[in-house]
């Protein structure tokens, strides 16, 4: 029961686990390469949600210092900055993976990884 009450308190983490597992499932069960890339992106989203929610504080505001210097509670800016890096790397990875899929489609005429493996086996 400890786990369940812990998960209800940390519902951000729970949601990120669910998103991560959906992504993993999509990546492992679909043979279409474009769907695999979508699954990878969903997995990334789960990780981003997890790391950003680590830095969240209830009632905290975005970490931008007001000019008049009022005391405000800020959320932790470090996970946000880290995840900015992560998003950019994710975009680069997606772009390169998609262009590789385009080249594969040009060569094999399909984006299905099972069919591509079958063709390669026959080629050999």
């Amino acid at each position: 029961m400890n786990i369940i009450s812990g998960l209800i308190q940390n519902y951000f983490y729970f949601a990120s686990i669910v998103i991560f597992l959906i992504g993993t499932h999509v990546m492992l069960t679909h043979s279409n390469l474009i769907k695999k890339i979508m699954g990878m992106n969903i997995m990334e989203t789960g990780i981003f949600l997890f790391v950003v929610s680590i830095g969240y504080i209830r009632g905290g505001s975005a970490p931008i210092v007001p000019i008049d210097g009022r005391g405000v509670r800020f959320i932790n800016p470090l996970p946000s900055a880290l995840i900015l890096t992560g998003i950019v790397v994710g975009v680069s990875l997606t772009a390169f993976a998609l262009s590789l899929v385009i080249e594969l489609y040009k060569y094999y005429g399909t984006t299905d990884s099972d069919e591509i493996m079958e063709m390669r086996r026959r080629e050999r």
Binding site: N2, I3, I4, S5, G6, L7, Q9, N10, F12, Y13, F14, I17, F20, L21, T24, F50, S53, I54, G55, Y56, I57, R58, G60, P63, R73, F74, I75, N76, P77, L78
Partner: peptide
């Protein structure tokens, strides 16, 4: 297996109410 291990690990983390951003690095930046 993944869901059980992840849920077990993440349930142990401090919840939102207990976090008040007191790590020294965060204080330094803010």
């Amino acid at each position: 297996i993944l869901s059980v291990t992840l849920a077990g690990a993440l349930a142990e983390l401090p919840s939102v109410e207990q976090r008040t951003s007191t790590s020294q690095l965060t204080r330094r930046v803010i």
